[in-house]
Structure formats: C-alpha cells, structure tokens
Write a protein that binds this DNA or RNA. Structure first.
Length: 133
DNA sequence: TTTCTAACA
DNA sequence: TGTTAGAA
C-alpha cells in the first residue's frame, strides 16, 4: 500500500530543504542549470520525488567535494540515480549508487586520487540512502 | 504560511 | 549564493 515508487512526486521544496540540507535557492538553481526537473503542482509549486531527493544529495556530496556544477553534470550524466534502466535488466545489485565508472575527467577532478574520491562518494551516498529508507 | 519568478547586492 | 519584491 505504501508508495515505494521512487519516481512519485511527493515533497515540497521546503521538505526537500530539510531532507537535503540545501537551501531552496540552491535547489532551484540546480534545476535552472539542468541537473533535475521536478514535477509541478497545479499551482506551479515544485514537487520532488524520492529519486530527485537522492539526486540532490548526490549533487550536494559532489559540490562539497569541490566539484563545480559543470563537473557534477558530467558525472551525473554518466550515471544518474539508480533509475530502472529500460532494456530489461533483472537488477543485479541496486546497492551500487552513483559513480560506477571513473573516466578521464582529468581537469574536472580537483584531486588525483580518483579511487579515494569514488570511495568517499559511494560511502556518503550509501549513508544517505540508508537514512532515506 | 509557503512557494514562485525575477532581479539586484 | 543570499535576499527581496510582489503575486499565487
């Protein structure tokens, strides 16, 4: 009965502010630069789905690690959120969050240690995910 | 009260 | 990014 669909729009921007620790200004700005596109209520208010909250947490994690929004965009394009990929994939390990394949983003990475970066990102994402449950 | 858009510091 | 103005 409980709605578990991660794509169902459920939260107002105010709720998302508390859930993510981001300001409404930041949340709207990330939308402006094309990082996400939340649903809208009849009154034009933004409504965020659990998946978008998760995405926002990923963005927060990445920016906190020194990525600018352009870098965040590139990374998220490689692997958005754990969205169900069309094609009929059974679902191996929905555990693995975002960043799965580091690539040659030399100038985008503020550090040389990609593995460490990836590890830190996955750790924070896993935590956020567990808390979100 | 909360959120929206637009715009300025 | 913060913050404000005026409108839903």
């Amino acid at each position: 009965m409980r709605q578990t669909d991660p794509d169902t729009p459920l939260y107002s921007i105010g709720v998302v502010e508390r859930l993510t620790g981001l300001t409404a200004r930041q949340i709207r700005y990330y939308e402006e630069v094309g990082l996400l596109e939340p649903a809208r209520s009849p009154g034009n208010h933004r409504i965020y789905s659990p998946r978008e909250v998760d995405l926002l947490l990923s963005i927060k994690s990445l920016t906190n690690q020194g990525f600018n929004l352009e870098g965040v965009r590139v990374i998220l394009q490689q692997r958005p959120t754990g969205a169900p990929q069309e094609g009929g994939e059974p679902e191996p390990d929905s555990r693995s969050p975002t960043l799965g394949h580091p690539r040659r983003l030399s100038s985008l990475y503020p550090v040389n240690n990609r593995e460490d970066l990836q590890t830190r990102l996955e750790t924070s994402l896993r935590k956020a995910k567990e808390e979100n449950v």
